[in-house]
Amino acid sequence: MNLSISQIKKKSLATLKGKWGLGVALTFIVFLVTTIVPTILEILLSGGFSQWINQTETPVIADMVNLLISFLFIPLTVASYWFFLSIARWNDPKISEVFAVYKEWELSLKLIGTSILVGIFTILWSLLLIIPGIIKGLSYSQVFFLLRDNPQLSALEAITESKIRMKGYKWKYFLMNLSFIGWAFIAIFTLGIGFLWLTPYISTANATFYNELIAPQVHEDQESTDLES
């Protein structure tokens, strides 16, 4: 069924019922981890709080460490997407499952490598013009969901698969995410606190988009392949 944007959003709200607390908690924890840890390291590498607060430029070593940390946080971010995909599928995920991604070091490295490739491809397209870069970013938007359901795919295969599956759906995906802009402005006026609720809503909507529109395409192709063989 080709659900409309409003139907996707309504379904995401339905799956979030009773799980808002989990979604808010995960959003808050991920925010703390990905902002406080780099800040503490930057303070230490800058020679202490007093020097850090008065510095006009960040030490090169601090920039390098922060870059490394940002790569290390990629599996955490992707596992957060999978957490909300689980909610979109009416399951009961645990926050501990998000951090468990680091137990599988091969998977973590694969996610980091895939993210870097997606970033490189998007930047290269953006060098031509902004619009092609945006379009390609939309094409690559399903990569990590596809890897969740199809872990046998390589990074390049997942990127190619996302491009194929998003044909005819990029505009809908763009409009769906754009439809949250009003809520984003409201969240800003709450000093950012509103994002603790808005982020789970958007994340679950994106997961529902994949679950309802993209995943069925893959399943249909797999069934066709099985019948042919």
Rank of each mutant, 00 (worst) to 15 (best):
I29W: 02
I29S: 09
I29E: 02
V30D: 02
F31M: 15
V33F: 09
V33Q: 09
V33R: 09
V33W: 10
T34G: 03
T35A: 09
T35Q: 09
I36E: 09
V37I: 12
P38V: 02
T39H: 14
I40W: 06
L44I: 13
L45K: 00
L45M: 01
L45G: 01
S46E: 02
F49Y: 10
F49E: 01
Q51F: 03
W52T: 07
W52D: 00
Q55P: 08
E57S: 12
P59R: 02
P59Y: 02
V60R: 03
I61C: 04
D63I: 15
M64F: 07
M64K: 14
M64A: 14
N66L: 08
L67M: 15
S70N: 15
F71S: 10
F71I: 15
L72K: 07
L72M: 13
F73E: 08
F73I: 14
F73Q: 10
I74F: 00
P75T: 05
P75H: 05
L76T: 06
L76Y: 10
T77N: 13
T77Y: 04
A79E: 00
S80N: 09
W82G: 12
W82V: 06
F83M: 01
S86A: 13
S86I: 10
S86K: 12
A88I: 06
A88L: 12
R89H: 13
R89W: 05
W90K: 14
W90D: 15
W90P: 03
N91W: 13
N91T: 15
D92Q: 14
D92K: 12
I95P: 05
S96E: 13
E97D: 15
V98S: 07
V98A: 04
F99V: 12
F99Y: 11
V101Y: 10
V101N: 00
Y102I: 09
K103E: 11
W105G: 08
E106Y: 07
L107Y: 07
L107V: 14
S108R: 01
K110H: 07
I112S: 08
T114D: 05
S115H: 06
I116E: 04
V118W: 00
